[in-house]
Simulated assay, not measured.
Amino acid sequence: MLFRQLEYLVALSRERHFARAAQSCHVSQPALSEAIRKLEEELDVPLVRRGRKYEGLTPEGERIVVWAQRILADRDALKNEVGALRTGLSGRMRIGAVPTASGAVSLLTGPFCAAHPLVTVEVKADLQSEDILRQLQRFEIDAGVTYVHKDLPEGFQAVPLYEERYVLLTTAADGLARPATATWAEAARLPLCLLTEAMQGRRVLDEAFAEVGVRPSPRVETDSVAALFAHVRTGRWASVVPRTWLHVFGVPHGMRAVPLTEPARTVPVGLVTTTREPGSVMARALTDIARRTDIAAALERLPGEQLPERDS
């Protein structure tokens, strides 16, 4: 059995198409198909349901893919560990983030890249919380920045980063008075642009609205926080956005951002990794950065200021 055969099987499971899987592995489709066929012969089980086109993996194939992902992750972890012992950490760090928290990821990647100059970082910033846990389990990412609840599933651990708070974002000429805060009930009466209902960030908002007995009826929904800012800029909409995004955009000219109260809703956000040992050397290094960097304090200030380190 060769690592290459396992890579091909994992790629086929991910892409669900022989040609796309071959392209992602930089080989021809016949070469990929032949390697998987030889793996089936060696394991003496069918892995792929074959017809006129790809029809999915067999039950045995689904189980073998889990083992393949684990074996390949261990191989990569071993190579990274040995490399770190020789020349320092090198390779590629993969981080997944929910869209509402993606604006805070740079506060981790900045000090991480400074501490490990031979590492490149890939950030997937459009994942849902469930996607992050699933991709961690499949070793497709090394760490995730997402909402953290007390019922975090077994096999995962989290380092708290900050408490997500919310502001009402409107245009400066919306005709409202200029109070220091706004209530969720007041926000519900405005023409709103919000995140889509499929996103956990939206479900958090709906819970806050429901707590005061109202239900928002947004005319526009999106999966992008940046798109929320863009819609408010037109002057037609208001929105509820995480306060962390003011650290990225500030309060754009012509807009207002006021804290939402009654209730004063907060949601914990953390860095999530697996508890599997020895685990990813990349994840351990990023976890160390997260524990030493005061993300919450940094989000209260304008970008570009030096980040403090927590006391050991």
Rank of each mutant, 00 (worst) to 15 (best):
A180E: 15
A208H: 10
P99T: 11
V214T: 01
T183I: 01
L271G: 05
L190W: 07
T234G: 08
H253T: 10
D151L: 11
V98K: 04
R291C: 05
A35K: 06
D288N: 06
C193M: 06
V251G: 03
D151Y: 13
I64A: 02
P263K: 00
A22M: 13
P216A: 00
R292K: 08
I295Y: 05
E34R: 13
T234M: 07
V281E: 07
V123Y: 10
R236Q: 12
L286R: 10
L136H: 10
D126F: 07
A180G: 08
A238I: 00
F229K: 11
S24L: 12
H26P: 06
E140C: 08
I132M: 02
D74K: 09
A104T: 11
P111H: 03
W67H: 12
K79R: 15
P308D: 06
E163H: 04
R292T: 06
A73H: 11
S28Q: 09
G103K: 07
A11Y: 08
A180Y: 07
T275Q: 12
L118E: 12
S102T: 12
R20G: 07
P252D: 04
P30H: 02
E55C: 14
D44H: 03
D44A: 13
R292F: 01
V220T: 06
D126G: 11
A290I: 05
Q137W: 08
L78P: 03
P30I: 05
V225A: 06
R75D: 06
T222A: 04
A77Y: 12
E42G: 02
L302Q: 14
F249I: 00
V105R: 14
A22G: 14
A77V: 01
V240K: 02
V123E: 12
H17P: 03
G144A: 11
R301C: 09
G110M: 00
A296L: 04
Q69P: 03
